[in-house]
């Protein structure tokens, strides 16, 4: 059974003659432990698509279901759903600069209302698993790009989400670090059984995905086999 299913997702900005359709009728499904790579150039609509899947943007048409339950785009309900079921990995990491690495990782748990001590303990264990036990008390400003992305991944995984959405996770890293980060995502997803959608324009990541879909001008143009 698919963990994530999107059906005929469409997003149109504006109205009338000035309207622009950024995503046009995209359907996809991702199974547990599967990495789907959405490959497309800049402006192809991949970020809009991942925003709708992640509940950050309400689709004009179409539906998203997570483990068979339809996503409600009501503001408060969707925020709570995101917190419990979706982990984000961003291109620019988006770590809170005022918090240490371990506090950033613990943040989703604290947002869920879990006490500081318990949240920090779990975050420390996860950071150690990702090879960052020695950098837990460092602030993001002192971390390397690769370390930041590992902290970002740890934050995405800490609340045991069912879905990982990664937006250009390697774009701010050099080739070596980028591949390392992607391999880390791959290992974590395969071990944790999450459904993972990675949007990228980097064709070098194709071999690390379980499945690839190419998106252009808001629509899926083909689904090339993985390398």
């Amino acid at each position: 059974m698919s963990v994530l299913e999107a059906h005929a997702l469409t997003k149109t900005f504006g109205s009338g003659e000035a309207s622009v359709t950024a995503v046009d009728g995209v359907s996809l499904s991702v199974a547990a432990g599967e990495i789907l790579l959405l490959l497309g150039p800049s402006g192809s609509g991949k970020t809009t698509l991942v925003s709708m899947i992640g509940g950050l943007l309400t689709p004009t048409h179409g539906t998203v279901t997570i483990e068979g339950v339809g996503a409600l785009y009501d503001r408060s309900d969707m925020a709570a759903t995101r917190l419990r079921t979706i982990g984000f990995v961003f291109q620019t990491f988006n770590l809170l600069p005022a918090l240490t690495a371990v506090e950033n990782v613990a943040l989703p748990l604290r947002l869920l209302g879990i006490g500081r001590r318990g949240a920090i303990e779990r975050a420390t264990v996860l950071l150690a698993r990702l090879g960052l036990s020695h950098r837990g008390h460092a602030f993001p400003g002192t971390l390397s790009g690769g370390e930041k992305q590992r902290v970002s991944l740890a934050r995405a995984l800490i609340a045991d989400p069912r879905i990982i959405l990664a937006d250009e996770p390697t774009a701010s890293l050099d080739t070596h670090r980028g591949r390392e980060a992607m391999e880390l995502i791959r290992t974590s997803v395969h071990q944790g059984g999450q459904a993972c959608v990675v949007v990228t324009h980097d064709t070098r990541l194709i071999d690390l995905a379980d499945r690839v879909m190419r998106i252009e001008d808001g629509g899926i143009v083909d689904s090339p086999p993985t390398a």
Partner: peptide, 22 residues
């Protein structure tokens, strides 16, 4: 939708988090 973590601290925990971030 699945809930994979429990809400142990409730509103008090969130207020504490808000204070911590502030």
């Amino acid at each position: 939708m699945p809930t994979t973590t429990t809400d142990e601290g409730g509103v008090t925990g969130r207020v504490a988090t808000a204070l911590f971030i502030a």
